[in-house]
């Protein structure tokens, strides 16, 4: 019995390893290598200029250092450096936005939400901050918050298709097919070839378009 169990587990682990190796194709490796070289080049240039930059402007030097760490894939050091910058200047919106990048790589969505909300508290309709906040809300599956949030952003940025995509996903996950179809239709007005929107609209072709079903009103 025990031997059978152990054999089963070993076979399962082997299967998982093989699957992950196959998933990483040759082209994936090639692209990663190219990206890595570019990042290294950027990092070496920044490193050479770092002394000059930091001696003239410490804040800017740290900003470039944090960015450099991020580009090299050292996300933890990047976050630490961005936090040092926040101590120097807590009002720096670009720092509060930039720190969300390494945090998003590490899927630390609560922290992404924290810094995005901090930016919004200073600059209420900063588009990038709202997009990152919506990304966090989607990752945390907070569909109610994403729905009401995306509606408010859509009123301020009606030309942006991305906002309607988030709105559609929020509606879809809440089971509101009409609202989801309406939001995806709005996406198709802006980007007719949008794959996700086309797929959903075609799937629910029986539902008629209703004007202003989303009922976008300023809160």
């Amino acid at each position: 019995m025990i031997q059978k169990l152990v054999c089963f587990i070993i076979l399962f682990i082997n299967l998982m390893i093989c699957q992950s190796l196959l998933a990483e194709s040759l082209w994936d490796k090639y692209n990663q290598e190219i990206a890595k070289r570019k990042q290294q080049e950027i990092a070496s240039v920044i490193k050479k200029q770092m002394k000059v930059v930091r001696s003239t402007d410490e804040e800017y030097g740290l900003y470039k250092t944090a960015l450099s760490y991020y580009l090299q894939g050292d996300y933890n050091e990047s976050i630490v450096t961005y936090k040092k910058l926040m101590d120097i200047n807590p009002l720096a919106l670009d720092v509060n936005l930039a720190i969300t990048l390494p945090l998003m790589v590490q899927k630390r969505w609560r922290e992404v939400r924290r810094y995005a909300e901090r930016v919004i508290s200073i600059a209420p309709w900063n588009y990038i901050a709202h997009i990152r906040l919506m990304m966090a809300e989607e990752a945390m599956r907070d569909w109610q918050a994403l729905m009401s949030h995306s509606k408010q952003v859509a009123i301020r940025y009606p030309s942006q298709s991305g906002v309607f995509v988030y709105m559609a996903r929020a509606a879809m996950w809440q089971g509101d097919v009409r609202a989801a179809r309406e939001a995806y239709s709005q996406v198709l007005v802006r980007i007719p070839a949008h794959i996700e929107a086309n797929r959903y609209v075609n799937k629910h072709a029986e539902i008629k378009d209703e004007k202003n079903f989303l009922n976008l009103k300023i809160n």
Binding site: P90, L91, R110, R113, R114, E117, R118, S121, I122
Partner: peptide, 9 residues
């Protein structure tokens, strides 16, 4: 901003 930070979740 400090107050806002305290109010952060």
């Amino acid at each position: 901003v400090s107050y806002e930070c305290l109010a952060e979740k």
